[in-house]
Design a protein around this nucleic acid. Structure first.
Length: 258
DNA sequence: ATGGCTTTAAAATAAAGA
């Protein structure tokens, strides 16, 4: 069972690329971030034509998440995180798919540091932790995946010095991420590759892709019940180099059947 | 170099991203 995440940076601008990737990679579940459309603009019919059914949480102009499943409709469990009723950002969507709890997240970027946006990022990380502890207590196979906007380790970035001032690498961001791991969640790609050097994002600017100036911020955290079933993971880097590509590449995780 | 690109929203610029 392949479960993937892809920050597509605009589902309208990226639809041909997205369909192409679904067709080639054919994940059982695909979590999308930054769909950047209101609910009514979501191209559900284009996915249905490929055999995928979807749920989504859109927003005008930016943010927005979706969960696609091959041959079935994800059963929605929750949209949005508790704790800040006034928070209208569309960044969290959770569903049951094929016997697995799947939470699709788009964590706030948090730049500049310091500032209100960074404060929001840290609060959001705390709210996420609260929800993940609830999921963990259910003792079900679970995966919380998406764009975490956190570079967990120095070997997850082409140059720690170049990114030192960025919200993605602040000690507070890393500590919050580390607390999730301490709670018992497994960083799927990080665990398979402790040596680092794997990127999921390359900036559009200054030829970052050509220089391989990237970093790893798209993650999947696994509950113990699912971590035992992990058999592989990877980044579809070739999709980053295609015409009109997102600045993120798709990341996939393969699991043994239960 | 708070920039460099890119998308969205909306009608020329501005916000947001990371």
């Amino acid at each position: 069972m392949k479960i993937a995440t892809f920050n597509i940076n605009g589902i309208k601008a990226r639809l041909p690329r997205l369909i192409e990737w679904l067709d080639e990679a054919r994940p059982a579940v695909a979590c999308l971030q930054e769909i950047k459309t209101q609910d009514e603009g979501f191209p559900a019919k284009d996915f249905e034509a490929l055999g995928y059914q979807a749920i989504w949480h859109g927003q005008k102009g930016f943010n927005g998440v979706a969960i696609l499943a091959d041959g079935s409709l994800p059963v929605e469990v929750r949209r949005g995180l508790a704790g800040e009723p006034e928070d209208e950002h569309s960044r969290y969507l959770e569903a049951e798919v094929g016997g697995v709890r799947v939470a699709c997240i788009y964590l706030p970027n948090g730049n500049p540091v310091p500032g209100l946006k960074f404060d929001y990022k840290l609060r959001w990380l705390n709210r996420l932790r609260t929800r993940m502890r609830e999921i963990a207590a259910e003792e079900v196979p679970a995966i919380v995946l998406g764009d975490y906007n956190v570079i967990p380790r120095d070997n997850d970035v082409w140059s720690p010095a170049a990114m030192a001032a960025d919200a993605l690498m602040q000690p507070e961001s890393r500590d919050a991420y580390a607390r999730l791991l301490a709670d018992g969640w497994t960083d799927a790609l990080g665990t398979l590759h402790p040596e680092g050097g794997i990127w999921t994002y390359w900036d559009y600017q200054t030829g970052a892709l050509q220089r391989d100036h990237g970093f790893r911020i798209d993650h999947a955290l696994l509950s113990p019940e699912l971590a035992d079933r992990l058999v592989g993971a990877g980044v579809d880097k070739d999709h980053r180099a295609r015409e009109k590509a997102s600045d993120h590449a798709p990341v996939w995780f393969e699991f043994r059947e239960a």
